[in-house]
């Protein structure tokens, strides 16, 4: 993701194992919106802790956060 505003500090984190950077102050809700993901269909783990859906707005991302975003796929 490109730095949209040079005065905003960016946070480096990993999402599903991929390096990303987001503006400081981004919440988990903001990250999901940036990624155009339907929050009703995913679950999120931040640094191995599950973040309940009700806390997405209140969860501010930090540098070096490891985020996992999962959903249901076909399986037996």
């Amino acid at each position: 993701m490109r730095n949209m505003n040079d005065t905003v500090e960016m946070l480096a984190l990993t999402v599903n194992g991929e390096a990303m950077s987001v503006p400081q102050g981004t919440t988990l809700a903001g990250l999901l919106a940036l990624m155009e993901l339907d929050r009703r269909k995913v679950a999120v783990e931040r640094n191995l802790e599950i973040v309940p859906r009700s806390l997405y707005e209140a969860t501010h991302l930090a540098a070096r956060d490891a985020i996992e975003i999962v959903h249901f796929v076909g399986g037996g």
């Binding site: 999962v70 249901f72 796929v73 076909g74």
Partner: peptide, 15 residues
């Protein structure tokens, strides 16, 4: 059903 990472390179893939 199985639980897997969302595909970040194809976010509009059908679910």
């Amino acid at each position: 059903v199985a639980v897997r990472r969302v595909n970040l390179s194809d976010r509009n893939a059908p679910m």
